[in-house]
């Protein structure tokens, strides 16, 4: 990455408003459909099913009338770590995953991955999934697959790509129109567009014109496991202190980071 072009670099990320999320799962469905995510005949064991976007249910552990719940959508955090030193990227022995300094997106190269799963061991968010089986689509469904996303074979790791193919399509369109920039609404992830509550906001975290730029600065905004130094690009927002505290690990005497 040359220093001269640094001003053009983007840092795509999300701000997810947990107070708005209803846990409907539309983001998960949209993600699976958009990215040709395979599924099993029996999906009851969630530990080996693939969910690039996964909605967790958090509880405050209190009884009625203080009981409260929160749904937390978890895509890949596209960690920047320390200068692109994401937990999963530096460990991959075959450079099958990469941190793109131009977009801030952590990519996965399926044809390069040989399935050692070291990246999965490295990711504290469980955002990486292994293809334990070959993808099998119900008859006729293969015709409905997204032609812009390659399906993955058995034995490789996959994960959320921030719908990177949409970024490439937007760039192609801009180029055809004679533009060198794309607007905020030209590149949006499938989960963002599918969210009926408008809880997921996506954009360039470094671009002042994008909504995420100011949203990430809200005092009630936090990131998951920030203290580990993963430097994730997915931000969460909640006005509830217990939700913010659930985002990271704290010793009993420590106060939640504002």
């Amino acid at each position: 990455m040359s220093k001269g072009s640094k001003h053009k670099d983007k840092k795509f990320g999300m701000v997810i408003d947990l107070d708005k999320c209803t846990g409907c799962g539309a983001c998960m469905v949209a993600c699976m459909s958009e990215n040709n995510v395979p599924f099993k005949e029996n999906e009851s064991n969630k530990l080996d099913s693939i969910t690039w976007m996964r909605v967790y249910k958090l509880e405050n552990g209190k009884s009625f009338p203080d009981a409260d719940i929160c749904f937390l959508p978890r895509p890949c955090m596209h960690c920047e770590g320390d200068h692109g030193h994401a937990p999963c990227v530096s460990v991959c022995p075959a450079i099958a995953t990469d941190y793109d300094h131009k977009t801030g997106i952590v990519s996965q190269i399926y044809t390069r991955c040989f399935g050692c799963r070291y990246c999965m061991a490295a990711c504290p968010y469980h955002a990486r999934y292994f293809n334990w089986w070959d993808p099998v689509w119900p008859e006729g469904m293969e015709k409905l697959l997204n032609p812009n996303v390659s399906p993955r074979m058995r034995g490789v790791v996959e994960k959320c790509s921030f719908c990177h193919h949409r970024y490439q399509l937007a760039l192609d369109k801009a180029y055809a129109d004679g533009r060198d920039k794309i607007e905020e609404d030209e590149y949006q992830t499938a989960c963002t567009q599918a969210c009926p509550a408008n809880a997921i906001i996506f954009g360039d975290l470094d671009n002042k014109k994008h909504a995420v730029y100011s949203l990430k600065k809200n005092p009630n905004t936090f990131r998951l496991l920030e203290r580990l130094g993963t430097n994730p690009k997915v931000y969460y927002h909640s006005s509830r202190e217990w939700v913010r505290r659930a985002g990271d690990n704290y010793l009993k005497h420590e106060t939640t980071k504002a």
Binding site: P93, A94, G115, G155
Partner: peptide, 18 residues
Amino acid sequence: VGQPLRSWFIFWHANVHS
């Protein structure tokens, strides 16, 4: 490894930081 036939990638496409 998930794709044993690609095991040689670890040598050929080596990531020296891993």
